[in-house]
Nucleic acid binder design. Structure first.
Lengths: 257, 257
DNA sequence: TAAAACTGTTCCGCTCTGCTGAACGTCGTT
DNA sequence: AACGACGTTCAGCAGAGCGGAACAGTTTTA
């Protein structure tokens, strides 16, 4: 996932460097000073000074010659999760849906033009994947993401494309602006989106938006699974109706919070 | 909870300030520039510059005149949670225990001389409390914390007391070094710890350590609930045995990870 | 056994940058 | 219309962050 975001002129370099180090530490799942100098391109002494600072504030722990992210970050994560109304509102509904269909169901929202998974309910037959709570996704390449894009103002969609582009993950990924806008139009008619291997080969998904009274998008619900299995489900159990029902339940929950 | 940690001489001030702002933003659950200047004691323009930096890196979002922590922090939180072997190892066992006893069960670990709750399983009769995943606790005032202290080297316990002190939360909190060490000795005999309103009035808890083969402590399991209810449970269902069994299950799980 | 090649850590000086206080623009209120 | 609150911008000085090199360990190599 892209690291920068925007240019935005006057940033405090020291803070940017500290955050770069945290991100590198995250990717590396723990690393030594030298490894971090390679990953960040900073001087060894600079990395060291930052690590000392981060450790003294409790965000990093030192374990012999290895530095790792500390559990301090957990409280931030839990905080933002619970601060997001969708988290509580989606908890029961997605658990219910995943139990009925047996597949993985997740609820995501958008921020800064990217999607973030904020709640996951495993199905009994869930495949293993790298999608978990906290995962960031591009909006154009996921079912839930497209469902959200379809209900954002068109100029906002343009901004997002300008900022993040339309990178391809598989041969099926939509990379053309016009094609995307066409699909968004049909989504608004049908109420749900499909994703057929546009992000991961062989993995399909169905997504529905979660809307407020005034039409603003709060997020999306997505059911994901292996391509063939989902196609069957879709016929047998009328997945579309169940998904819309779940989304609607979440919408109602959102009104009382 | 204390914010600093240690003196540690040469810290990068800009980074310290950025983290202070993040922490203030966390406490305030979103705030404007002016509120943050009051909370942090920094100049308004300084706060603004930091917020711009944090926003450009995606850690903070701006919503009109209010800044909030972004969902970006969620990926960090989930990362450290899953990087901690205790998380996966405790998931099933504590769910099982909380189902049987009906009370809230949580699993915590220690880092930097503080406890952190890394997994919670709600019981059917759980009371509402501010203890949740990510919550930091002082080790001397919680059942699980004392269970962990009891199996740390004595000099390490001294260090921790020197660093964090023995602050009192209720009249029952242990504030005397000798008393604490006496209690730690009896804990090692009995295998479990009790907490009778030492952190929250009227709330009791029972904790057991999670130990490795070589005797090192990985963490602790704790059952918490209203005082009178827990006393009954304790008699009826022999909570101590069930708790030790759960702790042991987690210890076994830890060996295969 | 010695030395070479790694680590993480410290030191010091230069330059650049982060900090501040004040001024600006823009809302909502009185 | 004047006021007060907010977030934002500006400019200049002092201090602090940065990097290169030297230090102190530990493991690997000859």
């Amino acid at each position: 996932m892209g690291t920068t975001g925007e240019g935005e002129g006057n940033r405090i370099e020291a803070v940017v460097k500290a955050l770069d180090i945290l991100e590198a530490l995250w990717q590396a799942e723990g690393a030594g000073v030298t490894e971090l100098t390679e990953r960040t391109g900073l001087a060894k002494s600079t990395v060291h000074a930052h690590l000392t600072t981060l450790r003294s504030k409790g965000y990093v722990v030192q374990d012999g010659d290895e530095y790792r992210l500390s559990l301090r970050l957990l409280s931030f994560g839990e905080h933002v999760k619970h601060a997001e109304p969708l988290y509580a509102a989606s908890d029961a509904p997605i658990a219910d849906l995943s139990e009925r269909v047996g597949e993985r169901v997740f609820c995501s929202t958008h921020q800064n033009g990217l999607g973030t998974v904020i709640n996951v309910s495993e199905g009994t037959r869930s495949f293993t994947s790298d999608i978990d709570v906290g995962t960031h996704t591009y909006l154009h390449s996921s079912a839930g993401g497209k469902a959200m894009l379809a209900h954002l103002p068109e100029e906002r969609v343009d901004e997002i494309i300008d900022q993040w582009g339309l990178p391809a993950f598989t041969d099926e990924t939509i990379t053309d602006r016009e094609v995307l806008f066409d699909e968004l139009a049909t989504i608004r008619d049908e109420g749900v989106t499909y994703n057929r291997g546009e992000y991961l080969p062989g993995i399909s998904a169905i997504g529905a938006p979660i809307l407020g009274n005034d039409g603003t998008v709060f997020g999306a619900v997505t059911v994901a699974g292996p391509h063939h299995r989902l196609e069957n489900e879709w016929e047998e159990h009328d997945l579309r109706t169940q998904l819309l029902s779940t989304a609607n339940t979440i919408e109602v929950n959102m009104m009382f919070s």
